[in-house]
Nucleic acid binder design. Structure first.
Lengths: 219, 219
DNA sequence: TTTTGCATCACCAAAAACCGTTAGAAACAA
DNA sequence: TTGTTTCTAACGGTTTTTGGTGATGCAAAA
C-alpha cells in the first residue's frame, strides 16, 4: 500500500517529534520531512515531494500564511493542513480562502491529526471541533464587515493598506504623533484612520486593535 | 522495575499527545496524567502523585510560574522540568531560582525530554542546548549575578494577582473607570496598577500590555 | 457619468491615559 | 523584629485618545 507522505512544519522541534511519534503508529502514513521555519519549507518542497503539508502559522523568517500564498501562486498540488495556536474565525477564513484544506487548533488531540490527514488526503476538508465552533458562531452573529469581505474575492483583509500601516505602527506602541511622522502624514489623518479602524473592527479602543492584529497575524 | 511517573502540563493537547507518544516507547517512563491549564495541575497534584512534572510556562488561568511558586510554597517533593517557547535568560534564571530542576525550550528535540526526565529523576539538573547557550552568554556578556539581577528588578517578574486581574480587564477593553467598578477599588488604584504594569513589563502603553498578555496566555 | 471607496486634513470637546510621587495598612519573609 | 511586597489611595499635571462632523481630491468601478 502506498503511504501518505507528510511534511511537518513548526518552529518547535518538540512538537514535530511529538506529531512524528503520534503518526508513527499509523501504518498508512509516513513522515518524509520536517521544517523549523517557512523558508525551509519552501526550500524542501523545491526539491522534494509530499502529499500533505502540516503547516504552523507562527513561524520565524517566513510565516505560514506567506508559505501558503507562495505555494498557491506557484500552482502547488499538495494538500495543506494549517496548524495554529489561535483558532480565530478570521484567521481560519483567511487561510481557507488562500487555499488550505484543513485547520487544526493546537489544543486539539493527537488523534485529530490522523483523522485530518486521512480526510484531506481523500479530498475532504477537515476542521477540529473548536475550529468548527468558531466558524459556525462567526456565521450566526451577523458580522457585516467580515461577511462583506468574504464575498468580494481578492483579499481577505477588511482593512485598507493604509489602515494596515497604521495598525502595525499602533502595535509597535507608537502614538499618533509618532505614526504621523513615520508615515509622513498629518496627525489628524492618523487619528481618522485610528477612528475608522476602531469602528470597522467593532472594538472599543487600541487594546481591541492590538488583539485583532495579533490574532490575525498582522503583526 | 518501578517506572518514573510523569505528569504533563501544557495548554496544547496536541503537544501533550505528542510528548506522550514520544515517551511511550520508553519502558522506564509512564505518563500518569496531564493538564491543560495551571489550575488543573494544582487540582491534580492535590489528589494524585507523580515523580516529575513537565510544566509549560504559558498556560491560561494560572501560569506555570504561579504553579511552580505554589508548589514550592507548599513544600512539594516532585521534580519540575519547565517547558517554554521562550528560552529567555531572565526567564530561565527566574524559574531555576523558584525551584525548577530543568528547563527545556520547545524547539529542542523529543529525545531531550527523555534525557531530561532521566537526569532530573536522578537528582541532576537538565537544560537543553539552546538554554545552556542562553545562560552562558548572559553571564559572559554582562557579568550580572542572579542575585544582583533579582535585586534591581530587571529579571522576569511574574505579576501579582491583582496586577493580573487588572491586566485581564484591560484586555477586555475596559477603561480604568470600568475596571475600578468591576474590582470595587478606586480608579486611582487602578491607574497605579496600570502604571506599575507598564513599568514592570517595560512597555510603552496599553498596547504593549495587551500584546504581553496575549503572548503569555494571560488572556 | 455618477457613484463609491480611499486617503487626506481640520476643528472642537470630552474622556481617558500617562507621569511622578507619596504613603498607609496588611501580609509576608528573612 | 525588621524589612519587603502587595494592595490600596491620592494629588496635580500633561499628553493622548476618542467621538463627532465636515470637507477635498483622486481613482476606480458601476
Amino acid at each position: 500500500m502506498r503511504k501518505i507522505k507528510v511534511h511537518i512544519a513548526d518552529d518547535h522541534q518538540l512538537l514535530i517529534d511529538g506529531i512524528n511519534a503520534v503518526l508513527s503508529s499509523e501504518n498508512n502514513i509516513e513522515v518524509v520531512g520536517s521544517s523549523l521555519n517557512g523558508e525551509d519549507v519552501l526550500n524542501w518542497f523545491a526539491l522534494n515531494e509530499a502529499d500533505i503539508l502540516i503547516l504552523d502559522i507562527n513561524m520565524p523568517k517566513v510565516d505560514g500564511i506567506a508559505v501558503l500564498q507562495s505555494f498557491v501562486k506557484s500552482g502547488f498540488q499538495q494538500k495543506v493542513i494549517v496548524l495554529s495556536s489561535y483558532d480565530d474565525a478570521k484567521l481560519i477564513k483567511e487561510v481557507l480562502k488562500i487555499g488550505a484544506n484543513g485547520f487544526l487548533a493546537k489544543k486539539c488531540a493527537g488523534e485529530n491529526i490522523v483523522e485530518a490527514i486521512n480526510a484531506v488526503y481523500c479530498g475532504k476538508q477537515y476542521f477540529s471541533e473548536s475550529v468548527k465552533d468558531k466558524l459556525l458562531s462567526s456565521f450566526t452573529k451577523n458580522n457585516l464587515s467580515i461577511d462583506k469581505i468574504s464575498q468580494d474575492g481578492t483579499f481577505f483583509s477588511p482593512l485598507t493598506p493604509r489602515e494596515t500601516d497604521v495598525l502595525k505602527l499602533i502595535c509597535k506602541q507608537y502614538n499618533s504623533n509618532e505614526i504621523s511622522k513615520t508615515l509622513h502624514i498629518s496627525i489628524n489623518t492618523v487619528e481618522t484612520h485610528r477612528k475608522n479602524l476602531i469602528h470597522k473592527l467593532k472594538v472599543k479602543n487600541v487594546v481591541g486593535l492590538a488583539i485583532y492584529a495579533i490574532k490575525n497575524n498582522i503583526v
